[in-house]
Design a protein around this nucleic acid. Structure first.
Lengths: 194, 194
DNA sequence: GTCTATATACGGATAGAC
DNA sequence: GTCTATCCGTATATAGAC
């Protein structure tokens, strides 16, 4: 595959990534993606044979982006609490899009579950990557055997906040829950510091 | 409309209710519903003109069922804490279906948001009814001006638990989070009892 | 009220010219 | 590599016989 094809392939995946988030996977058609990229539907199939193949590529880049982000935070900050706060701040930093479209990860998993789509297994890797990174942080804070459960708990909290913010289209709720999460984190750390 | 038509209408709504939950709204076709009820597609349109009309009817009965359930709990139990525990136990009592299909309310709101569907406004009434009932319970527990925020918090927690349980297909996580919720409730009550 | 047959649109996917 | 034209399945929705 040539360089030009690679570049277009990337543009297709980027467009699909955005559209799957905004409109959902099933509700996004090949035409939608082709229009967004500026190529014809026919040409489309030169790059991707099936819709599932695009979904697979979208999940792959998302997993990659999440991993890069977490790696960067690990590199830039040494304090686990600080790192977890950065994770919580994802909510605040994306409150407008969460209000309109929910969590890109959670809503995709929810949709794939409804479709009984095999790629749900691939999609929840996005969550697993965050879970594992968070587990590392909580373990570093002395939470030992509980670290993984606490990481899962935080993951679920963020999903719930995204779902409700989206359903009620209420950013105020998101901000209020972020405060509660920060408070919870302080309490957890204090608790395990004993 | 005759009695027979009414009965069939109810059977259609019941079938749609279940299918929308299991497969999602958009992914459920008229044929799916007609097959489930045991009538032809053509006959279908005698009862409902559009798919949105069915969605509307499904939301209406869901709101009604939720309201009845909460009214019954209010009538049968006088202790607000006991009532809230019954609400939390919805998760435990439905863990198999939540594992497979998530929360019927949250996942519908998530889908309608993606579709930019006007009926999201109707759908989040299901959440609002629960929010208001929970607010009453927390107020009765002395949480005053915070009651509504705490109710929203609990609502979000349940949504997050459902999303993660569904994404990872992990009932064990649900049970573990229910324990955490019960513990949280105890702590909240103790905190406001001072 | 219920059925079969059908109109119409759109989706994913392919063929083949250029 | 990119396009136009097209196949085919399925979806919503309608018409009209019974």
């Amino acid at each position: 595959m040539g360089q030009k094809a690679q570049a277009i392939r990337q543009r297709i995946v980027a467009a699909a990534d955005q559209l799957f988030y905004q409109r959902g996977y099933e509700h996004t058609s090949f035409s939608d993606i082709a229009d967004a990229v500026g190529i014809s539907r026919g040409n489309f199939y030169y790059h991707f044979k099936t819709k599932d193949e695009i979904l697979n590529a979208v999940i792959d880049i998302r997993v990659d982006q999440i991993q890069r982000m977490l790696d960067a935070w690990t590199y830039e900050y040494s304090d686990p609490q600080q790192r977890i706060l950065l994770f919580i701040d994802i909510l605040t930093n994306n409150q407008e899009s969460i209000k309109s479209h929910g969590c890109p990860i959670g809503s995709l998993c929810t949709e794939l579950a409804k479709l009984s789509h095999e790629m749900l297994q691939e999609a929840n890797v996005m969550l697993a990557v965050m879970r594992d990174w968070l587990t590392d942080q909580f373990r570093a804070l002395g939470m030992g055997a509980d670290a993984r459960k606490i990481a899962m708990h935080l993951l679920a909290r963020t999903q719930g906040i995204a779902t409700i913010t989206n359903a009620f289209e209420d950013q105020q709720f998101l901000r209020q829950e972020v405060k509660r999460l920060r408070q919870w984190l302080d309490e957890m750390i204090a608790q395990y510091a004993n």
